[in-house]
Simulated scan of single mutants.
Amino acid sequence: MLAAAFPLPVSAQQSRGSFRLVGEVRIGSAPADSGTVVLHRVSPSSPDLTGKVDSVRIAAGGRFEFAVENASDSTVGDVFFASVHFENVLYFGGPVTGPADIDGTYVVQAYRRVGVGPDTRLPVRIRNVFVEPAQPGPGWFVTDLFEVENELEVTLVASEEGATWSHALPPGALGFSVGPSDVAPEAASFSGGRVHVSAPIPPGEHVYLFRYSMPEDNFTLPMEGATGSMELLFSEPAGELSVTGLASLGPMNMDGGTFRRFAGREMASAVVVVERGATLTDGRSMQFLAALLALALTAAGSILALRSRSRGGSPGARAGRRRELLIAVARLDEARNAGEIADGEYARQRGALLRELKG
Rank of each mutant, 00 (worst) to 15 (best):
Met1Pro: 10
Ala4Gly: 09
Pro7Ala: 02
Leu8Lys: 12
Pro9Asp: 11
Ser11Pro: 03
Ala12Thr: 15
Val22Asp: 12
Glu24Met: 12
Gly28Trp: 06
Gly28Pro: 09
Gly28Arg: 05
Ala30Trp: 10
Ala32Arg: 06
Val37Gln: 07
Val38Asp: 06
Arg41Pro: 10
Pro47Gln: 14
Lys52Ile: 15
Asp54Pro: 10
Gly61Leu: 08
Gly62Lys: 09
Asp73Val: 06
Gly77Leu: 04
Asn88Thr: 15
Phe92Val: 07
Pro95Leu: 01
Thr97Phe: 02
Gly98Leu: 01
Thr105Ile: 15
Gln109Val: 10
Gln109Ile: 09
Gln109Thr: 11
Val114Arg: 12
Val116Lys: 03
Pro123Ile: 05
Arg127Asn: 08
Arg127Glu: 12
Arg127Lys: 13
Asn128Arg: 11
Asn128Tyr: 05
Glu132Ala: 07
Glu132Met: 02
Pro133Ser: 04
Gln135His: 07
Gln135Ile: 11
Trp140His: 12
Trp140Phe: 08
Trp140Thr: 14
Leu145Arg: 08
Asn150Cys: 04
Val154Met: 00
Thr155Gly: 00
Thr155Asn: 00
Gly162Lys: 05
Ala163Trp: 05
Thr164Lys: 02
Ala168Gln: 09
Pro171Arg: 08
Pro171Val: 07
Gly172Ile: 07
Gly172Thr: 11
Leu174Ala: 00
Gly175Tyr: 02
Val178Gln: 01
Asp182Val: 06
Ala184Ser: 12
Ala188Glu: 10
Phe190Cys: 01
Arg194Val: 03
His196Gly: 00
Val197Gln: 02
Ala199Tyr: 00
His206Gln: 15
Ser213Val: 11
Asn218Glu: 15
Phe219His: 14
Phe219Asn: 09
Leu221Phe: 13
Met223Ile: 13
Glu224Pro: 00
Gly225Pro: 07
Ala226Asp: 14
Ala226Val: 14
Thr227Ser: 08
Thr227Gly: 04
Ser229Arg: 13
Ser229Thr: 15
Glu231Asp: 13
Leu232Tyr: 12
Ser235Leu: 12
Gly239Ile: 07
Glu240Thr: 13
Gly250Val: 13
Pro251Arg: 10
Met252Ser: 07
Arg260Glu: 11
Phe262Pro: 03
Phe262Trp: 15
Ala263Val: 14
Gly264Gln: 13
Ala268Ser: 14
Ala268Leu: 06
Ala270Lys: 15
Val271Ile: 15
Val274Gln: 06
Val274Cys: 02
Ala278Asn: 07
Ala278Arg: 11
Thr279Gln: 09
Leu280Phe: 05
Arg284Phe: 05
Met286Asn: 09
Met286Gly: 00
Ala291Leu: 09
Leu295Cys: 01
Ala296Asp: 12
Ala299Tyr: 11
Ala300Met: 10
Ala305Glu: 09
Leu306Pro: 00
Leu306Trp: 12
Arg309Trp: 13
Ser314Pro: 13
Pro315Ile: 14
Arg318His: 03
Gly320Trp: 11
Gly320Cys: 01
Arg321Glu: 14
Arg322Ser: 06
Glu324Lys: 06
Leu326Gln: 11
Ile327Tyr: 02
Val329Trp: 05
Arg331Asp: 14
Glu334Gly: 02
Arg336Asn: 04
Arg336Lys: 13
Arg336Trp: 09
Asn337His: 10
Gly339Arg: 01
Gly339Asn: 03
Ile341Arg: 05
Gly344Ser: 11
Gly344Arg: 15
Gln349Lys: 15
Gln349Phe: 05
Arg350Ser: 11
Gly351Val: 14
Leu353Ser: 06
Glu356Leu: 07
